[in-house]
């Protein structure tokens, strides 16, 4: 699993959560994480129905673990204006990490990276630094470095 500039969507203009998850699903086709944007979108929505993946301070982590996903991956979207999302602090969302894993055989290394990303979002320093970066290649590099499997 690599995180490159095309895993990062900056200054995204979306009208709501639904719109965003559709755009992320399209981007996932470009990143070869899925062949069906529609099926991936449905997986995100279904997980969201279990309970919201909104966190706090503007972050959310929608995820899909389904047959629609062909390879594990992450897409980060930074929104131009906040959207409504059910979150712990009742604040709208501006920063979204979409996590995707195949239903079976994701591989421990990839799962560990996703786990590292999730726990990094508990860390104020990570969030602050992430938001301070403005270029997609720098952001991709920073995320890769922070969640690399060598760093436990």
């Amino acid at each position: 699993m690599e995180i490159q500039a095309n895993n990062i969507l900056l200054n995204l203009r979306v009208k709501d959560q639904d719109d965003l998850l559709r755009i992320i699903s399209q981007q996932a086709v470009c990143c070869h994480y899925t062949v069906s944007a529609k099926d991936l979108y449905i997986s995100f929505i279904n997980r969201e129905k279990d309970y919201s993946t909104g966190l706090q301070e503007g972050f959310a982590i929608p995820h899909a673990k389904s047959e629609a996903v062909k390879a594990a991956g992450i897409i980060y979207a930074r929104l131009l204006s906040p959207i409504d999302w059910q979150t712990y602090d009742n604040q709208p969302v501006t920063d979204v990490f979409a996590l995707m894993v195949p239903k079976e055989g994701a591989g421990t290394r990839h799962l560990k990276m996703l786990s590292n990303l999730a726990t990094a979002l508990l860390d104020e320093k990570f969030k602050r630094k992430l938001r301070s970066l403005k270029r997609s290649d720098k952001i991709a590099h920073y995320i890769s470095k922070e969640i690399g499997v060598d760093k436990i």
Binding site: R47, I61, H63, K65, A118, T119
Partner: peptide, 17 residues
């Protein structure tokens, strides 16, 4: 958690911290 991807490690780490 349902997918076992994100909330599981987050809750564990948050409680340990």
């Amino acid at each position: 958690c349902p997918a076992g991807l994100a909330h599981t490690p987050m809750a564990a780490k948050a409680l340990e911290q």
